[in-house]
Amino acid sequence: MHIIITGGSSGIGAAIAEIEMQRGARVSIVARREEPLRELRAQILAQYPSGQINTWAADVTDAVALERAIEAFEKSFGPCDRLIAAAGVVEPGELISQDMESFRAQIETNLFGTVNAVRAVYSGMVQRQSGQIVIISSGAGLIGIHGYTAYCASKHALAGFAETLRQEAKPNAIAVSICFPPDTETQQLAAELPLRSPAASAIIGDAKPWPADRVARIIVKGADRGRFEIYPGLQMALLGRFGAVVAPVLRWYFDLKIATVRKNQDH
C-alpha cells in the first residue's frame, strides 16, 4: 500500500507516517522544508531499516511543484492508495488587526494546498476506480473561535469541500474521510499559543492538548474503517454530530466569555 502524506515532516502527519511504516506500507512525505524531512526519514528508517520511505520538499500551495513531487512518488512506489492531506498553518489574529498576507497564507495552505494535493492524485484514482483521500481539518472547522477568523474560514471550507468531494468520488469507488482534531501537541501549537487571544483561551478552556500519535492512531483507524467523519474524542464527536442543535447555546456562552474577558481587561 502506498501512502502519500502532505505536511508530514512533523505533528500529526509525521505520526501517521510512523504508524503506516510500522504496518509495512510504502510511505511518501512532502513538506516545505528539506531538513526536517531528512531528519524524519533518518529517524523512521532507524526504527524500520527495511522500510520504504520517500521524501520531497515542496510547498503545497505550489500546484506544479506538488504535482511533480507526487509524480516522482508514484513512479517509485506505484499509484497512491491513500492520500493524507495534513499540511496546514495557523496564525491567530482578529480580522481588524491581521494583515492580508497572513490571512491569505492560511487560506492558501489549508484550503488550496489540500485541493492541490487531491487534484494531483484524483485523476489516477478515478482511472483505477480505487483509492482513499483523508483530509485533516480541525475542531476549528466545526465552530468559530475568537481571533481565528482566517483559520476557521479555511477549516470550515475543508468540511464543505470534503462533503461535496465524497459525493463526486463515491461513484468512482474512491473513499473520502475528513478528521476534526482537537488541540494537538505539535510544534505548530507551541508557536500558536503565545498568539492566542485571552478571549480564545477563555472559549477553548483548559483542555489538555492531545498527543499527536494518539490523534494519528484514531485517524488511521477511522480511515481503515472507511468512515467519512473522524472525531478524536467525545467533545469533537458531540460538536460534529450536534453542533447545529447547540449552536445558539454555544454562541451565548462564547459571547459571555468574551464579554467577561473584555470587562476584566478594562479594569
Rank of each mutant, 00 (worst) to 15 (best):
I145R: 04
P181I: 10
A153I: 12
R128C: 00
I136F: 12
Y148I: 00
A120Q: 04
S138L: 08
G141A: 10
Q129N: 15
I174V: 13
A162L: 09
Y122M: 02
I135A: 06
P181D: 07
L142K: 11
L111V: 14
Y122R: 01
K170P: 00
E163T: 15
G160D: 09
N116A: 04
F180Y: 15
E168T: 09
R166E: 13
S130L: 00
K170T: 15
S138R: 06
C179E: 06
K170W: 11
I143S: 00
I133P: 02
F161L: 14
V121N: 03
I135E: 03
A120G: 00
S137D: 06
A159I: 07
I135H: 08
H156V: 05
V118H: 01
G141Y: 05
V121Y: 06
I178R: 01
S137M: 05
Q167I: 13
R166I: 02
M125T: 01
L142A: 08
Q129E: 14
R128Q: 07
V121P: 01
C152M: 04
A140M: 12
A150T: 10
P181V: 12
C152T: 14
L142P: 02
V121S: 01
K170Q: 15
L142H: 09
C179I: 15
S137E: 08
V126M: 13
I143H: 04
G131W: 15
A150Q: 12
A153P: 07
S154V: 10
T114N: 01
S137P: 05
I178L: 06
F161T: 04
A169R: 06
Q132Y: 11
T109S: 08
F112D: 00
T114Y: 09
G124P: 01
Q132D: 00
A157H: 04
G147E: 01
V115N: 01
Y122W: 10
G160A: 12
T114S: 07
L158P: 07
P171M: 13
A140T: 09
A140V: 02
L165Y: 12
Q132P: 00
I143L: 12
E163C: 04
